[in-house]
Amino acid sequence: MQFDSFSEFLNMGGYGFFVWLSFGITAAAMVAIVIESRLAQKRLVREILAEQARKDRIRGVKSPSSNREQQL
């Protein structure tokens, strides 16, 4: 342990601002890209399900009457 107290740890021998700025932005950037990647995944799944539901709807309209020629 290099620091005697927590406030000394935060102070970083007078370089606190620069050290915590670096670690802060690094953590923020890494968390941001993880969240973005996970959100993209969720968005894609939602998109696929919506498209699938649309297809099922169309199929549901078509199949009971069974042929389109009658409707036309």
Binding site: Q2, M12, G13, G14, Y15, F18, V19, S22
Partner: peptide
């Protein structure tokens, strides 16, 4: 001093 700790990222 302690500013070198930035090296770790």
């Amino acid at each position: 001093g302690d500013s070198f700790r930035i090296i770790y990222i």
